[in-house]
Design a protein around this nucleic acid. Structure first.
Length: 1053
RNA sequence: GGGCCUGUAGCUCAGCUCGGUUAGAGCGCUUCCCUGAUAAGGAAGAGGUCGAUGGUUCAAGUCCAUCCAGGCCCA
């Protein structure tokens, strides 16, 4: 016969987790969970690869917990859920990390001096190092994902897949070279990422100039009007290409001081102040479209330009509402220029100086050109006004040079060409929460702009385009290569084993298939977000390798990341899927809120409020952190995490659960009980057992439904409530049956804990597996050797008893009221009372066995019905009040509800209540009209008067008879002594089943009580003898001065 | 500047889909009580203009509008 291993009530959860981890490794549980589900329906999940550029933080744990829960849940439901880890290896974040480590401050110059081969080798090392830490994190937190077969975006097969996809896009004519405006440091010779730019903002004072652009066509020209244009970057006027106005803003043509100017109507007062203006006419901005003007400078050639265009981004907050456009130096300007097919002319060279051949500004640093430009405008009568303007402007965080927004040639994917397809794909995607779909994400798609794909950097997937030398510039032939094998064929050398990174790939040249001249690779690498978005196929190396596996697992049924990925991974996945396969790569997406610190701030290195996940694991356990993330609030709202929240999880949920199991083991072993022991059929078990099972199956249904809807918090609430019900009601009320080894109670609790363990397993995989091991596996080797290999519990509708649930809820409410009444009267529960009287709807239908629980919890000898109408049952003790039930009345009476409610209040409550009780209805008078109301329309409360301890709430009343007889008092003393002896047993470390001998000495009422109550006392404290008198052995005495009592005890044997 | 999310007790959060008159729970605090598993449990108390204003309605934390604050993303 196998006994359960003893389960200490106190447990070191982090230590336990390490043991469980070792067992998972030994038994290869994760791999077996996949193997055993291999024939089940496939449920596909894609892992979003974290960027391996720093230590993993607590926010990484968040997404990974959710990415673990749902696959575990689905696996238990019989689905096959393969999951492969992935690492995002490329990109500027990695480069910056390495630059910092190498002590570089000079940007690209330092890297090139160091050597690209060496630099990229350092990047690779850095990635490998950080992936090691992510592996540790992943394992420790219990995130089951295949780490051995992880995809790395820097591996050659992955890069080849990415190339293949780019070639598909290229072949569709959607991968093109164009210009892109980026914040650019002219000293370092590099563009800066947003993140870098954000670090270098500070206030500077620039000239703010209003310039006249005389109109040269149309009716405005006849008026001799000039557009009044405002800018804070006079140096960009050299390359003025157009003027933008807002189509919906009203523009005014005014005569001021004898000249005619065009200004946005809302800005007239601001621009001209007190100067009198004469409004000649007004027009919508859209009417100004294509109005030509005489440009401010004629130093560079800009063909086909210089007219008014429309742009929604124009505001009337500052300036004149007419915005000067210089497409090479402004992102919005460039967009406008694109739409109108305007040329992008850039007179500033890469070092930030104007082309030396230009008059006026030739060779000047761009900022230094402001002064001569403003002077020249003034000299030519073009300057309307000049002011100084202080604003925030970005500078290079490395060298403090003012940044220039600068158009660099760049490679684009024309995502705008497939925008409609993207919108359609989004339409059929299920978003959690739903609002993202048409809100944040839908919005982003609607404003889709072409994807700027290239980066002028080093550590990234090289753009697989080779340009021939046959024709200069635009006319050169381009060759896009889709694999190393293809590259081998084109280059005539075997490069299938080449590292496809810079600088090695740069050395591969090929013969242009069109003109036979030598072609070399373009220098750019690609945006690492493209790498990540390629994972659906690239994780397999598809289609070059594992094409079938890819086909089977596309698209994913489920992906899950935090909300910042809407414009990141969620977008690139959908965009690449749609571009390459004409189908988004996922069907359902769970979008998480962010984890914040205890002050509600985002966690960031900068603020120093980052919580080290490993410390949290060792302090509270991974289960605690998992439960908090999953159940501490809605998945999609942001939540604050801290030690205190985790301590609460441990105490309230994990330890309560553990202790319930520990309790079961204690009494199962004490009574030689096993799961195989005979137990009564469900229907023959006591109501309390049937209630526990009924609640259990209601919870199974609730958790199942909640997880189906990806609402882990809702599931967690149901589970936590059940843990509490089980521990603090079922076990509490059943204790005596456990002491007696009642097989019904033991079987019921075992079943409840066992099913609960399976429900909890995907949430808190460690502690549940340990409980499963001890409670199930140890005593039945035929069961799977991990809870994670078990099936998800099925709901047994036959066990769900709704009426019983309602009855028990009433019992618990009445107990609460009784306790409140006792507390109010300052009569402790240990003091038995003769009776309690109850008045509550449903009380008459409450089965006797359930009434017993009320009596027992309240320690009263009898329960009576409080009936104000019947003499001798408390009628003289109660006040009756009747209140309208608005919900019921509102449906029937609508607008007259308050009048009916008032009528009910005006009617004598005793009469009303009596009528409702005897006749089932009552009549009240509303505005002289008789209205019939039923029992549901009125909430009757009966409140006993003085002399009783009473508590009432929501129409339910419990009254305690406080009169104490000597017999009751003595029974109270016995119960007091029982508790003291129990406390002494516990303090001396006796086992719960140890028998003892007991001696006592006392006087007066205490002596009387103990003499009378020796038998119950002996039974309760497991005493084989209860002796009045001192022991003759030297035992420690237990004095109780309040009772005039001293007792002694010792264990037998 | 735009879009979205959030705002309920000192703190963490339910409740809002589908409106019902005493707005709940946990943590923390005070006082009691219970204890034959528990780091637990229970009762009472203190603690709320349910972000603000207006509207719809017999009735608004809940529906509508506007505004404010914080967050996220974008500019």
């Amino acid at each position: 016969m196998r006994a359960f291993r003893p389960m200490p009530p106190q447990v070191d959860l982090p230590a336990l987790e390490h043991e469980v981890l070792a067992r998972w490794r030994d038994r290869d549980v994760f791999a077996r969970s996949l193997k055993q589900s291999a024939d089940g329906p496939l449920w596909t999940f894609f892992e979003g690869p974290p960027t391996a550029n720093g230590k993993p933080g607590t926010h990484h744990v968040e997404a990974r917990v959710f990415k673990d829960l749902f696959p575990r849940y689905r696996t238990m439901k019989g689905f096959h859920v393969p999951r492969r880890a992935g690492w995002d290896c490329h990109g500027l974040p990695v480069e910056l990390e390495v630059e910092k480590r190498l002590g570089f401050t000079g940007g690209k110059k330092d890297i090139e001096a160091y050597g690209i081969a060496e630099f990229n080798a350092r990047c690779r090392e850095s990635v490998e190092e950080h992936v090691d830490e992510f592996n540790r994190l992943t394992e420790r937190m219990g995130y089951w994902v295949d780490l051995d077969e992880a995809y790395w975006t820097m591996n050659a097969p992955y890069v080849e897949s990415v190339w293949w996809s780019l070639k598909q896009i290229y072949d569709k004519g959607l991968l093109v070279q164009d210009h892109r405006v980026t914040p650019y440091c002219p000293r370092c010779g590099t563009g800066l990422s947003d993140h870098e730019v954000a670090q270098g903002y500070y206030d500077v004072t620039d000239p703010s100039v209003f310039v006249r652009f005389p109109v040269t066509s149309g009716p405005l020209a006849e008026l001799g009007a000039a557009l009044l244009v405002w800018t804070t970057t006079p140096w960009t006027l050299i390359s003025n290409t157009a003027v933008a106005v807002h189509p919906a803003v009203t523009y005014t043509v005014v005569r001021v001081d004898g000249e005619v100017l065009v200004v946005a109507e809302p800005l007239v007062a601001k621009v001209f102040g007190d100067t009198p203006v004469e409004v000649l006419r007004t027009m919508a901005g859209s009417e100004l479209e294509h109005t030509t003007y005489d440009r401010p400078f004629d130093l560079v050639d800009i063909p086909g330009a210089h007219y008014v265009g429309l742009a929604d981004y124009v505001t009337v907050d500052d300036g004149t509402g007419l915005v000067h456009q210089s497409p090479a130096f402004g992102a919005e300007d460039l967009l406008v220029a694109r739409r109108y097919g305007l040329p992008v002319v850039n007179p500033v060279t890469l070092d930030g100086h104007f082309d030396a051949s230009l008059p006026l500004v030739g060779g000047l640093f761009f900022k230094a050109a402001d002064a001569p430009i403003v002077a020249d405008l003034e000299a030519r009568g073009r300057l309307f006004r000049r002011e100084n303007y202080t604003h925030s402007y970005p500078h290079c965080w490395r060298c403090d040079t003012a940044l220039i927004y600068y158009a660099l040639p760049s490679w684009y994917i024309r995502t705008t060409e497939v925008k409609d397809r993207l919108l359609e794909e989004n339409k059929r995607t299920r978003w959690y929460p739903e609002t993202i779909k048409h809100g944040r994400y839908g919005d982003w798609l609607n404003n889709n702009i072409d994807w700027a794909l290239s980066r002028n950097r080093y550590w990234g997937t090289p753009l697989p385009i080779w340009r021939c030398s046959g024709n200069e510039g635009e006319g050169a032939h381009l060759t896009c290569v889709g694999s190393l094998a293809e590259l081998s064929a084109l280059s005539g050398t075997d490069v299938t084993h080449l590292d496809p990174h810079r600088p090695y790939i740069d050395d591969v040249t090929l013969t242009c298939p069109q003109c036979s001249t030598t072609a070399t690779r373009v220098p750019e690498v690609i945006d690492c977000w493209y790498d990540a978005g390629s994972m659906p196929f690239a994780q397999w190396g598809a289609p070059h390798r594992n094409a079938e596996e890819f086909e089977r697992a596309y698209p994913a049924q489920f992906i899950c990341e935090a909300i910042d990925q809407t414009r990141g991974w969620f977008y690139t996945l959908m965009a690449i899927g749609t571009l390459v396969f004409d189908r988004s790569s996922y069907e359902t997406v769970l979008c998480l809120g962010h984890i914040l610190d205890e002050q509600g701030r985002k966690m960031s290195k900068h603020l120093g409020n980052v919580l080290d996940p490993f410390e949290l694991f060792e302090r509270h356990g991974a289960d605690a952190l998992r439960w908090f993330m999953l159940c501490g609030g809605s998945p999609w709202s942001s939540r604050r995490v801290g030690d205190r929240a985790l301590e609460e999880v441990v105490r309230k949920v994990l330890l309560t659960y553990w202790n319930t199991a520990s309790f079961l083991v204690l009494y199962a072993n004490a009574n030689n009980w096993q799961p195989s022991s005979a137990a009564p059929h469900y229907s023959d078990r006591p109501a309390l057992d049937r209630w526990a099972l009924s609640q259990l199956h209601a919870v199974v249904a609730e958790v199942d439904a909640a997880l189906d809807d990806f609402d882990s918090a809702r599931a967690g609430r149901a589970l936590a409530a059940y843990v509490d019900d089980l521990s603090n009601w079922y076990v509490r009320r059943s204790r005596r049956r456990f002491w007696d080894g009642d097989p019904s109670a033991l079987a019921t609790l075992h079943e409840c804990v066992e099913v609960l363990t399976r429900l909890l397993a995907p949430f808190v995989p460690f502690v549940t597996d340990e409980v499963h091991e001890r409670l199930v596996r140890d005593v039945d080797p035929s069961v799977a050797d991990s809870v994670h290999l078990r099936a998800w519990p099925a709901v047994d509708d036959a066990l769900v008893d709704v009426e019983l649930g309602e009855h028990m809820a009433l019992v618990r409410r009445l107990v609460e009221l009784g306790r409140a009444a006792r507390a109010d009267a300052a009569v402790k529960t240990r003091q038995p009372l003769a009776r309690a009287m109850v008045s509550a709807p449903g009380w008459s239908r409450l089965p006797a066995v359930l009434r017993e629980h009320v009596a027992d919890e309240l320690n009263v000898r009898a329960l009576d019905t409080l009936d104000p109408a019947a003499a001798g049952t408390g009628g003289d003790l109660v006040d009756v009040t009747a209140k309208a039930n608005y919900r019921a009345l509102g449906k029937r009476f609508g607008q007259r509800t308050p009048a009916v409610a008032a009528a009910i209040a005006d009617t004598d409550a005793t009469v009303l209540a009596a009528a409702l009780r005897t006749g089932g209805s009552a009549t009240v008078t509303v505005d002289g009209e008789a209205v019939t109301v039923g029992p549901d329309d009125v909430v009757v409360s009966e409140t006993p008067r003085a002399g009783w301890a009473v508590a009432a709430a929501g129409g339910e009343t419990v009254a305690l008879d406080l009169e104490l007889t000597d017999e009751l008092r003595r029974a109270g003393v016995v119960r007091e002594v029982i508790r003291l002896v129990q406390e002494a047993r516990k303090a001396q470390g006796f086992d719960v089943s140890d028998r003892i001998e007991l001696w006592w000495e006392a006087e007066g009422e205490t002596a009387e009580a103990l003499a009378e109550g020796a038998r119950p006392l002996a039974g309760e404290v497991l005493a084989t003898t209860v002796t009045h008198g001192r022991p003759n052995a030297p035992l420690a005495d237990h004095p109780v001065p309040e009772l005039g009592l001293t007792f002694w005890l010792r264990p037998i044997g």
